[in-house]
Amino acid sequence: MNCSIFDIIGPRMIGPSSSHTAGAVRIGQIANKLVNGRVKRAKITLFGSFSETGRGHGTDMAIVAGVLGMDPDEGGIRYSKLTAHQQGIDVSIDFSKEEAAHPNTASVYVQGDDGQEYTYIGTSIGGGRIEITSINDMDVGFTCEYPTLIVFHKDRPGIITRVTAALAERKINIAFMKVFRSQKSQGACMVIETDSNISEEVLKAIENDVDGITEVCSI
């Protein structure tokens, strides 16, 4: 694989650790994006090395900073808990003794101010890069390096075609796409990574026009 020279010199970030700090901010950011920046409450649980060495690495502050919408190079990361408190956002952090499949794992529950709720599991896989392995109890796998559309739907024929057609009509190119399901004919989830941003209007159109969809969100 040809890595970029900016994977070698970069990212610009708040220390001390690309996996335990910068990656942790990115995991937190997913919560912010899921509720369009309107976070009311977040519950964060750290596992494995995140839990064991998280305090010294500022992993807890980093995830909270991400939940508030901060980037990995923002100086305010260190004061994120205070900022959350000042903004009236209810944040709690639990350092779990349970092991997770990956050493650097966090589970995040987020509630938006309109009552929307999501729970996801994120892992920090090195160099500040992350992977989301579960969302609302659905096992998934995506890296959040592209604008990502997540569609929860019924597991039946025709739905994928209609969603991808809706994107094609709006000239949104699909870079990667994966489909997951819990059980045959039960709930399913498609994760579509695109080359351009997906607007609220597109999300609404997909949710309203395509039959069999339970929920649509974007990251």
Partner: peptide, 15 residues
């Protein structure tokens, strides 16, 4: 600066 949660450039890592 890295250890005290300041801003650095990973080169090639933060450590």
């Amino acid at each position: 600066v890295n250890a005290t949660m300041g801003r650095i450039v990973a080169a090639p890592t933060a450590g």
